[in-house]
Nucleic acid binder design. Structure first.
Lengths: 165, 165
DNA sequence: GGGTTTTACTTCATAAATGTAATATAGCTG
DNA sequence: CAGCTATATTACATTTATGAAGTAAAACCC
């Protein structure tokens, strides 16, 4: 409540001046913004010890979460919500560190296959305990039931965007 | 559900490989990330017609939501979640456009006072209808009751970060 | 099968956004 | 007054986004 109170006060003033301003949706949007910032900052701090930034970590986790630890760059872009040009740059960096490998695809030679190397797998296993702790800490204020309900509602929120296109 | 399904599948694989990985919290974090991206992109698209980007709009709305349409740069930084250096640059841009004004503070000569100009106020009144529509559209999939519950849970989520410091 | 169109990825150039560190000035404290 | 803190700016470095153009392979189509 504390860090968000000023935001609510400003929204109240805004509504007084422009009554059509929808308070509820605006609060939701600003809460998402605040949460995103905090999550992002925390993650970057935790990852610094492992020589990674948040986007790089995300890419590694997308590969880790795939059946054979392998994805095409375009799939990875879709999975991580990054543009194709960014994927090239980010995967370049991960290749230089020896965490992933690029190889030509067997079935379609336009494509590449990005795969976690043993070193990449090692690094993930090393950093996962820290990340697990962080995630637990960040959510420890909520009961399991509340987390489940929050998940349900956030998905519904996101659905609205999918429908809009 | 649709755009988020692959993410859930990847989390399932991740959990199989690292059972300690907390699924619930991880889903929440990724949902926040997806939502933030969609919100940010939508807002930027809507604001382009008014010659503003999302950060600039945010600053204007922080001033609009303040009793006398005036804030010190440090207050604005806190309100908008931006670094001080960013505020200088962003307010430079807004000054050049004639939307806000800088003036020396009477009580503390280290400080400046940033104030909405009549032109800034006009622009806000012009763009608010579009923004209101956007906010309504983005949340129309949820009932008022669900929005209220989502707001409550997001605040609780954010509280966890405030406690961590 | 030869020509065209799509698709996948990279490259490059450029711009926009953001972060970091040092600086100048003003206020505060003992 | 001396030393410390707070405010805002500046210059610099880094990161990220955007878009155009290039390369190569696959798919399509008559």
């Amino acid at each position: 409540m504390s860090s968000f109170l000023p935001t609510e006060q400003r929204l109240a003033v805004t509504r007084r001046r422009h009554p059509a301003f929808p308070r509820g949706p605006a609060v939701l949007v600003r809460l998402i913004k605040h949460l995103h910032k905090r999550i992002h900052d925390d993650a970057n701090t935790a990852l610094k010890a492992f020589g990674l930034n948040h986007p790089q970590y995300n890419l590694l986790m997308m590969l880790y979460g795939t059946a054979d630890h392998a994805l095409h760059p375009s799939q990875l872009a879709e999975a991580a919500g990054e543009k194709a040009a960014n994927i090239t740059r980010l995967t370049d960096e991960l290749c230089e560190k020896g965490l992933i490998e690029r190889a030509a695809s067997a079935d379609d030679r336009r494509k590449l296959v990005l795969t976690l190397t043993p070193a990449g797998l090692d690094l993930i296993e090393q950093l996962l305990p820290s990340i697990c702790d962080l995630l637990e800490e960040q959510t420890q204020g909520m009961s399991a039931r509340e987390q489940a309900e929050l998940e349900r509602l956030l998905k519904k929120f996101l659905d609205g965007f999918d429908r809009r296109g």
